[in-house]
Design a protein around this nucleic acid. Structure first.
Length: 833
DNA sequence: AGCACGCCGACT
DNA sequence: GTCGGCGTGCTC
């Protein structure tokens, strides 16, 4: 082989990788692979790459090839983080599908898919050049910066900005680099640190029974040491089974038994014990209370279970429509066990809010080590662990929230989506604005898995698909055991007001119901979907209302902290004593939040022990759990709560449920308001009387004859559906069309207005006036000083979505060409809720 | 998305 | 003359 040939070969065989970066950029980036890694690169590995002049990012390899880019010089990748692929090819395909469908970038999907612990944090830091001493050559600002860096050793750009009080530290730093005063370096750290425990075991020589008995004898007079050894043998029966020694005993066990640490050290020193470290799962091993599943399905459950299996023969997706308390969970468990026995992976998706300790601990008891939990209340380290474990084939069963559809599954057999109708499966705020239920179906399709949707109150869209025969449908209409459906009574607040029977927001009837239930020693639940004390405060003299100065919303009064808060931007200020307009001191709290209900109720029923469950009282995991146990142990007579009491909460003593303000739920300005009201009220009502006694449900409303109450009372989902589907068809709403919402945002109201009107015009012209609604002002016009306008596009079924989106994308891309609209953000939300 | 570069007005 | 503002375009 000649020399030129060799050269040629090496040139040809330079390896490049295309990488997916966690950024909103519509393409892959190509990097050159250093020779020493040419053999190890493969798709799915995480790599560290330089990006721009200062940034360093974690990316993932999507392909390996030999084509040097023609337009530019590829940079070298800096590091390879994994020995084996951490991201599967099918995941990357899914990311691309999501990006394409929801009109965002694959990098944005990648960004939410990967737990933060798997992304390296790169912070460019600056340090003072070790040989620099020309302080007098610097400007005043520069000297301040250099001194600050010197004091701390090193600073990030952000810190420089803060210390020196400059907006753009880059200018200064660049100048300083030029003068040889400072150096820039990157600090990389893999933020994931596995949890390690130190263990102790006998050295190999003593595993032999003979040697061990000799040893015990020889230590006879060393009482401290012998008790340490005996402690070990009590837990690890080496004499009976030498193989148990391998796993050893936690070091902590000795100190816990108050054994002398110095004796242990002596034994270690003398080569009797040895210490070693093991990486353990952060989810404590629950082997001790491993309880095998020993329940039986009742007859309706068995039938439903059979029917699901039958329908899976021909359908990819089955809807299990089972009323609250019908025992859907047992059916899920059966199906999960079956899938696991088949060697399949299982994903059980739950809405965030429902993922309470209750259901998780139940599943953990049944599935033990097989189940991994993927949830935002868990630390990032724990999420990293779930991810890695799935790759390694551990955790065949994952219970998780929305984002767990992006986990690295490879052989999914079943996906269960519980509370299928829950809107929290749809991500709305940052891109990707995906619906986990719909992504799950694509995932299932990819992996050949079946999907089971479960709900007591299915979404209209899903039920329609089932009715059309696209999904299988299984109905469970009997409550488990002998439990009866709760009885629903409507309390007319209009009438009560006329008869002067209102005590604050409470009708006399509601008070007496709660009072007598308390006297009977029963627990009650009062539902009001609004946190804080009062949603607004108003001047009694001039009607002025305190508003957030960054958003167009009233400020909510929080009594506990004596402050006014904006629930949209988080702004807070102390409670006002005077009206902001006329200076009057006649300020009154208006409307009812959970805090105020708690307070008023305490005055109305002084002896009752009242608890409150909302975002403000359950911020931490511990607060939530302790509140739960208070309820369970009967230390709370009446629980006031928001949304969160409606989901997943399941406790025995609860016999009465009251909905404080049903009107607010029913009259919400949205085409889904009735569907949502039915779901919410049914769900809250379902909390009552889950065992032997029939529960009571009371609803305060000023429209007592509203059809919805009749439907809810009879548990008549079919009636609701029949009603709604007609409306949906008439007005071309889902499931008869797809909705795409465009939100335009800008600091200037006028810019948003003009851009929205212009874009609306173009879209109407291009896609037809019937398909484009708006532009309209959203419910809240301004948030964080950003004005917004919305345009809604309805696309009837049958229109090519791909073609439409392409065309829409073109419209959006040409918008900034008009100087008037520069800087106006347009955010598409596909299948918006 | 950042952020670097460049061009502009407002100050030591 | 420097500093900080913002607009624009690029990042392999």
């Amino acid at each position: 082989m000649g020399e030129s040939n060799l050269l040629f070969e090496s040139e040809e065989s330079t390896v490049f990788v295309d990488a997916l970066l966690p950024l909103p950029i519509p393409r892959f980036f190509t990097y050159r692979v250093p020779r020493q890694w040419a053999q190890v690169v493969e798709s799915g590995l995480r790599i560290v790459v330089p990006f721009g002049s200062t940034k360093v990012l974690t990316a993932v390899i999507v392909s390996v090839h030999h084509q040097p880019p023609k337009q530019y010089q590829a940079k070298y990748l800096l590091e390879i983080l994994d020995d084996a692929p951490l991201v599967t090819t099918s995941q990357i395909a899914l990311f691309q599908w999501v990006a394409n469908y929801y009109m965002c970038y694959p990098g944005e999907v990648f960004q939410v898919a990967l737990p933060a612990g798997l992304k390296i944090s790169s912070q460019s830091k600056v340090q003072v050049h070790p040989e620099f001493d020309q302080l007098n050559e610097l400007t005043e600002k520069e000297r301040v910066i250099v001194e600050a860096i010197q004091a701390k050793g090193a600073l990030t750009y952000d810190e420089v900005a803060r210390v020196a009080e400059v907006k753009s530290p880059y200018h200064h730093i660049k100048a300083l680099v030029g003068k040889g005063a400072v150096l820039i370096f990157d600090e990389l750290k893999d933020r994931y640190t596995p949890k390690v425990i130190r263990k102790i075991r006998l050295c190999k020589a003593w595993e032999d029974i003979g040697a061990l008995t000799e040893l015990i004898k020889s230590l006879e007079d060393k009482t401290k040491q012998i008790s340490v050894l005996l402690h070990y043998l009590r837990f690890i029966p080496v004499l009976r089974d030498p193989s148990t020694n391998q796993k050893g005993l936690e070091k902590a066990s000795f100190s816990l038994a108050e054994l002398s640490d110095s004796s242990l050290q002596t034994l270690l020193k003398n080569g009797i014990f040895e210490s070693f470290e093991v990486i353990v799962s952060r989810f404590g091993s629950d082997q001790d209370d491993f309880i095998p599943a020993t329940f039986d399905l009742n007859e309706p459950q068995t039938k439903a279970y059979q029917s699901i299996l039958d329908q899976f023969q021909t359908k990819e997706t089955v809807l299990l429509h089972g009323i609250t308390g019908s025992g859907k969970t047992e059916i899920y468990i059966r199906l999960i066990q079956e899938a696991l026995a088949n060697g399949d992976q299982v994903l059980y998706l739950l809405p965030e809010i429902a993922l309470t300790t209750q259901i998780v601990s139940r599943l953990k008891k049944i599935f033990g080590e097989q189940v991994g939990i993927y949830h935002s209340k868990f630390s990032d380290n724990e999420r990293v662990e779930v991810w890695k474990s799935i790759v390694e084939g551990k955790y065949p069963f994952v219970v998780g929230v929305r984002s767990s559809v992006f986990l690295p599954f490879s052989r999914l057999g079943l996906i269960i989506i519980d509370e299928e109708h829950e809107s929290s499966f749809k991500q709305t705020d940052p891109a990707p604005r995906y619906h986990a239920r719909d992504v799950a179906m694509v995932l299932a399709n990819q992996q050949g898995a079946k999907v089971l949707l479960g709900s007591a109150t299915p979404s209209i869209e899903t039920y329609y698909q089932a009715k059309q025969g696209k999904y299988g449908l299984v109905t469970l209409s009997e409550r488990f055991g002998k439990a009866q459906l709760p009885e629903l009574r409507v309390l007319d607040t209009k009438y009560a007001t006329r008869m002067k029977q209102m005590k604050g927001g409470f009708s006399a009837d509601l008070v007496s119901v709660l009072q007598s239930n308390f006297e009977r020693g029963k627990q009650s639940l009062l539902f009001q979907n609004r946190r804080g004390y009062s949603p607004y405060i108003q001047c009694q003299d001039c009607d002025w209302i305190a508003e957030c100065n960054q958003c167009d919303v009233s400020l909510t009064y929080h009594a506990k902290d004596q402050e006014l808060r904006c629930h949209y931007c988080g702004y807070r200020e102390g409670l006002l004593t005077r009206c902001g307009a006329c200076g009057s001191t006649q300020l009154k709290t208006m409307g009812y939040g959970t805090e105020k209900l708690e307070e008023e109720l305490q005055l109305l029923i002084p002896d009752a022990r009242i608890g409150r469950m909302d975002l403000d009282t359950t911020r931490s995991k511990t607060a939530f759990n302790s509140l739960l146990s208070e309820i369970q142990s009967g230390n709370i007579d009446i629980l006031v709560g928001t949304q969160m009491v409606a989901k997943g909460l399941d406790f025995e003593g609860l016999s009465t449920v009251a909905i404080f303000d049903a009107d607010r739920i029913i009259n919400f300005p949205d085409f889904r308001a009735h569907e949502r009201a039915f779901q919410l009220i049914t769900q809250v009502a379902g909390r009552a009387g889950r065992r032997d006694e029939q529960g009571q449900v009371y609803v305060q409303t000023n429209q007592p004859s509203h059809r919805l109450f009749d439907f809810i009372q009879r548990g008549d989902y079919a009636a609701l559906y029949a009603d709604e589907i007609v409306e949906r068809e008439g007005y071309h709403y889902p499931p008869f069309s797809r909705l795409i919402k465009l939100t335009l945002r800008h600091m200037e109201a006028q810019a948003v207005d003009q851009a929205a009107r212009y874009l609306g015009g173009i879209l109407k012209e291009r896609f037809g006036h019937g398909r484009v609604l708006g532009p309209e002002k959203p419910l809240i016009e301004r948030i964080r000083n950003q004005y917004a306008m919305e345009i809604l596009i309805k696309l009837e079924k049958g229109v090519s979505l791909a073609k439409f989106k392409e065309s829409l994308r073109a419209c959006l891309d040409e918008l900034p060409s008009n100087k008037l609209f520069k800087g106006v953000q347009v955010i598409p939300d596909v299948d918006c809720l």
